[in-house]
Structure formats: C-alpha cells, structure tokens
Design a protein around this nucleic acid. Structure first.
Lengths: 346, 346
DNA sequence: TTTAGCAACGTAACCGATTGCGGCAGAAAA
DNA sequence: TTTTCTGCCGCAATCGGTTACGTTGCTAAA
C-alpha cells in the first residue's frame, strides 16, 4: 500500500548542493547553467530515476502539451488511420494525445468536450457525431483562444479550420462511374443530411446524374443510419423498388457490404443485376465478394495534415479565427462490384 | 492571443468574503460547512463559471482519477467493445480514461507504458502487443503499487489479475464442431504462439482432434500474422496442401474472411469443399458469404469486468499481487461457413 | 456562572516545477 | 587598483487546490 515517494528536483538539488532552480534549468538545457554543473545534474537525475511531475509543471506553465481528440467512433479503419497520422506528427512535436469518442451522440460529444476542456488541452481536434446540430460545446474553447480543428464531419458554414475531402467530387465520380458502366437507374443510400459528408456526396450524385442527362428521382434516394440493422432496412427498401435499380451508390463501405449481402441473399447478382459503389476503402471492401468499388479516403494523410495545422496554431503564428479549409485528395478505386461491362454471370 | 484568466476558488472566496478553504470544502460537500454558506458558494461558483483546476488538485492529492489503457490495436470490434465496457464502469466511478495503442509493437507498448506512468494514472489496463516478450515496462507500476490488470492477451504465468476467456475450450469447441460436420482433415491457422490466446486455441484444437480420434498433423498448422498480406500467404499455403484440408479453424475473423475470399477466388466452395470457423464474432463475420461460423467473444462484458476489478483495487480493498484470473464465458456461433451437412453446392 | 463541547470557518503549510530578479565572483577594461 | 561586465547560480514568489490544525461564537451541561 505504501507508495514510495517520488524523486523531485529538490532531492537532486540536496544531493548535489545546488538550488532547485538550477536543477530545473539544467534539466531543460537552459543556457545559463554551466556545462559541468549541467552534466552532474543530468547524471544524478538519471541515477535517481527522476521523473518530472507533470502536474506541477502544468500548473505553473498553464499549459499541458496535450491535444484532445473527439471522434464519432473508433471502430472504423478510416478513423484509426487518422489517429495514426495525428499521433505521428504530435509525437514529433512532443505533444500527447487524449482520445475520446462520442459513440455518435451529440450528448457524449458535449460531455467529452467539457472533459477535455477541463483537462485543459492545448488544442482540440474533432469530427462531429451523427446528430450534432450545434457547436455550443465548442464555444468554451474559442472563448479561451484554444484552437479547434474539425475534420471529416464538419459544419461547412462554420468559422475556423476544417480538413476534409471533396465529398461532392467523390460522389460525382462514383455516380459517373456507374453511369459509364451502363447503369440507367441508380439509387443512392446515404445518411444524415445534416452531416456535410453525406449531403455533399448526395449533391455530387445528383449533379453527375444531371450532367449525364439522367433525371434525379427522389424515390431512389434512401437516407438512413449506417449500422447493420439500418443497412438491412435500406436493402429491403431497394428490393421493393419497382423497377429495381441497376446501380447503387452507398456512402459507406460497411453499409454497402451489408446491403450487398442482403441483396445476394435475395437472389440478386452483383454487379450483373446491380452494380455497387461504396465509400471509404475500408478493409471490409476487399474481403467481400465481389470486391467493392469504393472511394479511397486517405485517413493517415488527413491525420497528419490536421495535426500539422494544429501545431502551427499552437506555435502561435496563426490566427485561430481565420477560416481555412484544407482539401485532401481522394479517388475512386474500381473493383468487381461495379464492373458491369466485363463481368460474367457472377 | 490573450487567454483570459480562469476563475479560482480565491476569486469566489473574495466575492463572498469567505476563505478559500471554505470554498474548497463547500464545493465538495464537506460536512463541516453550513448549508446556507454552502449554497451561496455553489451558486456563486456556477454564476462565475468556475472550473476546478485539475493540476492543482492532482498535485496536492497525489492522485489523478485517471485510468490508463494500452491496447494492441483500435480497429477491431472486439477492442472497441471492451473499451465501451470499461468506459461505462469508469464513468460511473468518476474515473477518466487515457487510451493508448501499441500498434502491435512491443516498443510502442513500452513507450505508452512509460508515458502513462509519467502521467501518473491511478491504474492501468493492458492487452499485450503481438511481439511483447517481457513485462519490464510494467515493473515501474508494480514498484509504486499501481494496480495493473491484463485482459485478452496476457502472460499466463504472470502474477496479478488477468481477465480472459477460455481460449482452450473455444479452440476445442470450434474444432469439435468441424469434426461433427464431417471434416476429416482440419487445418488450423493461428498466430504468434507467444501470445496465450493463440497458443491456447491451438492447444484446444489439438485436444479436440485427439479426443475425436484424429491425429494431429503438424503440417496442417499455419502460424503467421493476421494482416491482409499474411492471410493471403496463409491461404496460398492451404491451397498448396495435398490433399486439401476439408476444414479450417482460423483464430481471427478478419484473417478468416481474407482466407475465405482467396480460397473462393481459387475456385473452391465454402463450406462444401472446405468448412471454416473463425474467431471473435467481428462484424465482418456477418457480411461475408457464406456467413462465418465463429466464437463469440463478449468484449463489452469483459471490459466491464476488467474495470470493476480495477476499481476494487483502487478503492484499496484488494491485494494487488494476489493472482486472480477471471474467465469470461464465450461460445460458438454457428453460421453458414461450416455447415457441411445441410449445405448445398454453394 | 463556568466550562466543556461542538458546529462552522479561517490560517497557513504544503504539492513540485518554473522563472523574474538579483547576487557574487572572476575577467576584462579603464 | 578600481570599475564594469558577464557567466553562473540562488532566492522567493507563483500556479490553484487541499487539509491538518487552530480559532471563533454559541449552546448545553455542571
């Protein structure tokens, strides 16, 4: 039970007959400490197993060297890639990360935001939850001039820095590809249109149809959740369409996988009967049959961009309120699920 | 740039003409503060938007109310379920979480451990990385009597608390099921045998074969990584076996999915030619075709058990060094990929 | 009327690192 | 020899809560 006492700079100072301030300065390579003294201190600190007390330091410096991250979920390949990217850059700059996830609910997102604020993170990175419709819980950061950067799920009209892909173009490309494959009746399965990612992809879909001389039919657009049960429901709606669509643009790979499975169970052939394009290039897209045509969403790169951007703010150079949108490149990856033209009967 | 000053208990004390200690005590419902004074203080604190400074508090209390978690990866359904379970229990007890992931490398695991130690977490929860072969980086916690609990990936012979499933039994059940389905030549694809989960599953596989009167053939066991490229390599090894096996026990769902896909690409039929059983009941098991028979690994429940156990240590009652292994129930979920007996020709 | 006794607060010493300011010795300049 | 720099380092305040201990004023028991 007895937890031994930690070594402090006072212990080191006593042993060496110097003052604590000298130890403090020596340990951070302050210029005004003689090199021999510095060496003795550093050696002694190592010998004694000194570990700086973060709380004392943070308390005094009013700064934590910590970046808070709020994501909508953890269990997607895309998100974990982003986290890796952020981590890489943050580690180089000696920043720590605290990762929180909102489980797609605005309520938990707000709780996480307060918690991270309370923990006094130096900066915040966030991707909005499914049902977030106001940014009040981020206001406290703005008020204290703590930089907040959004990625992926953002509010378009919001001030501040955002890092996104061109969801419009991605939706456009996906749809145009289906048209090029000969599809004439293309349905779109997407999700909460309050989220930029879904509304923009839908906009791209509509624009592509228009440019290709096809008219947009509202009945062919399904807006629902992305979980398994939602996807099954969407699949049933598709099966109930008369006539059946011959192409599907589904704005999420997992959802696309479930829908594809459900359609196959119903006796349909992919892509012969219905061609499918997903979104995200999740690992799942490569292990289903046929493999899923999808949009590559480069999470690792996005994470790095986000982190670098935040660090620039933190170093003080950049104006926090300056609206700055960074667009990451994404592209269509063509696989079997959409190749109608040279596809055999399964 | 100018970040405004935070409200402190001194500010509140001044406004109310009481002492800071009274404010401190009032805000945490200390008994020795009159209820009217307490009310005035709480009201004023809210009005002024007071937020306690965690660092000052932690510094003084020598305690952080934070639990550190090190997992091998984030992008698996199982792990995120465990995290949810931990979070639920921890939140109830007002503990915060810091989640770190080792990306399956012992090196990052050690770095994370040091970092969390340095952050002075009150307790640690960990699942070992793929290649961890010693626990030196956890020693610092033991030395300071900070409880550490391992789950899923553990060292069997290690002291301390562990929360696991019965991997032996799971491997046994999976294999026995394949035998019952009429398989006579069952291969096993597993991973690093230094990790208890894989070695135990393999042991269960061998025992089941023996009990069913079949002999163990070393050539039918493949030990490799679990990433996509590893799985493809394993699939090729399987395809090169002569004669081909008619049953596969693969100790990971994602790996099983990739192998199944590769085998199908090679013209084999599942389960008619080869029956397959996976492990984890990951979402992926339900969206591949045929759906994967697998072992249900109840992550959410496991997370709750782990957290509750840790909290008991933290509350001081339990002896940290007392070896205590908790076994969570798991069971076989039978789906199409292994149903040879009543399976048509795909 | 005295004196315990207690409820309700205040005082001040921490927790450990950081840092502005100042001191002191030896070297260089006058 | 005296003065002025520097280089190197110590003093002490500070960050914001927490808490052991002491101090009030008032009630109830002696």
């Amino acid at each position: 039970m007895s937890r031994e006492k930690d070594i402090t700079i006072y212990d080191i100072a006593d042993k060496l007959g110097v003052s604590p301030s000298t130890v403090s300065r020596a340990l951070k390579n302050h210029a005004s400490i003689g090199s021999s003294t510095r060496q003795r201190i550093i050696t002694m600190a190592n010998d004694m197993g000194y570990q700086a007390n973060t709380f004392a330091s943070n308390l005094r410096k009013q700064k934590t060297n910590t970046i808070g991250i709020i994501v909508h979920e953890l269990n997607s390949n895309f998100i974990t890639s982003v986290l890796s990217g952020i981590e890489k850059i943050a580690a180089q700059a000696n920043y720590d990360l605290i990762i929180a996830h909102s489980s797609e609910t605005s309520k938990k997102e707000a709780a996480n935001a307060s918690n991270l604020f309370h923990k006094r993170v130096d900066g915040l990175i966030a991707s909005l939850a499914f049902d977030t419709d106001n940014l009040a819980h981020f206001k406290q950061f703005r008020d204290k001039n703590i930089p907040v950067i959004f990625f992926d799920r953002v509010f378009e009209e919001m001030e501040g820095t955002k890092v996104v892909i061109n969801n419009f173009k991605a939706g456009y490309d996906a749809t145009a590809h289906l048209v090029d494959q000969g599809c004439t009746r293309i349905a779109c399965v997407t999700s909460n249109l309050k989220r930029n990612v879904y509304s923009e992809r839908l906009r791209g879909y509509r624009q592509a149809l228009q440019d290709k001389g096809m008219h947009y039919d509202e009945k062919l657009t399904i807006v629902d959740g992305l979980a398994e049960e939602d996807a099954i429901r969407s699949a049933k709606k598709i099966l109930a369409m008369k006539p059946l669509p011959d192409g599907l643009f589904i704005t999420n790979d997992f959802c696309a996988a479930v829908i594809m499975q459900t359609l196959k169970d119903a006796g349909l052939h992919i892509p012969a009967d219905i061609a499918i394009v997903g979104f995200n290039n999740d690992v799942i897209s490569k292990v289903i049959d046929p493999k899923l045509t999808t949009i590559n969403y480069p999470g690792f790169e996005m994470g790095q961009v986000v982190a670098r951007n935040l660090l620039n703010h933190l170093r003080g150079g950049w104006n926090i309120n300056h609206t700055n949108t960074v667009i990451i490149k994404s592209e269509l990856i063509i696989r079997g699920s959409s190749l109608k033209k040279n596809a055999g009967p399964q």
